Computed example of a mutant assay.
Amino acid sequence: MNEKYYLGAYWPGRVEPVESYARRAEDFFLHLARAEPMFNRWFEKAGSRAEALRHPLVPNEESLLKLFGKKYRNDEAGVSFSAWNGEADGASTGVRLACGSTSDLLGDLCVMELPTGGAARERVLTAPVLSQALRAAAVAWDPEWGIATSTAHRDRVSEFAVPGTFVGWVTYLSRRLGTVPPLPSPVHIERVEDKGTLIVMCPERFTVSNPEHIALAEQVQDQLNRAGLLNPIQPQG
């Protein structure tokens, strides 16, 4: 089974000046580039690959502010923006940002679609790279909860994929949620500055086809549930 993997960070709608979104996005892309060289090149998403390649993106505060302020801003939904790394087939990677939602139903997010094949998949789908990428999202966006795991695992443990309610290969929990308890080996816990905690389930690739991985994730999820740390992300409205 060739599982597809994604990375996401989620938080209640946080209304800030558009300049703040641009600074946070610059910080995210800067830290992301340190995780993997293929995360150094980005384009605005478009209706076709050829059209997207005509719109290279320099992800610094100045250029992002121009885009967010004019092209990707909606006063009711905040800023909604997507970027693509310009690679074809299995190396394709996308980033989607939604910031400043005032909806009673939707929160904010930063989501990455990760490579599905080839050398890019082998480089990116490792515990160190995904930990660094999720750390980049945590530092930049200060979310409540984040995840890097396969969609197959997400769908197995969460019928409606509700952010905040499950764990994956790499999970981030904000310190605002509470204190992460001691967890069983081989789970690894890392602090993320003063913001929260990364929980890395195992050093090898986490898959739903491995019953040991599933059993470990269930054990960790049960412990975090008992500690009151896994709850749906509630939009602020």
Rank of each mutant, 00 (worst) to 15 (best):
L30M: 14
L30T: 14
A33Y: 04
F43T: 00
S48A: 12
A50S: 11
R54H: 15
L57E: 01
L57W: 02
N60C: 11
L64M: 07
L64D: 07
K66P: 00
K66W: 10
K71E: 12
Y72E: 04
Y72C: 00
R73N: 10
N74Y: 12
N74F: 08
N74K: 11
A83V: 13
A83S: 12
A83W: 03
R96F: 07
A98F: 07
A98P: 00
A98H: 08
S101R: 13
G107P: 08
C110S: 11
V111A: 05
T116L: 00
V129N: 11
Q132F: 00
R135V: 01
V139E: 08
W145Y: 14
V162G: 03
G164R: 02
S174C: 05
T179N: 09
V180N: 06
S185L: 02
V187I: 13
I189G: 12
E204W: 06
V208N: 06
N210Y: 11
P211D: 05
E212G: 10
E212I: 03
A215Q: 09
A215W: 04
A217H: 04
Q219S: 15
Q221R: 11
Q221V: 03
D222P: 01
D222A: 12
Q223G: 00
L229K: 07
N231Q: 13
Q234W: 07
Q236W: 12
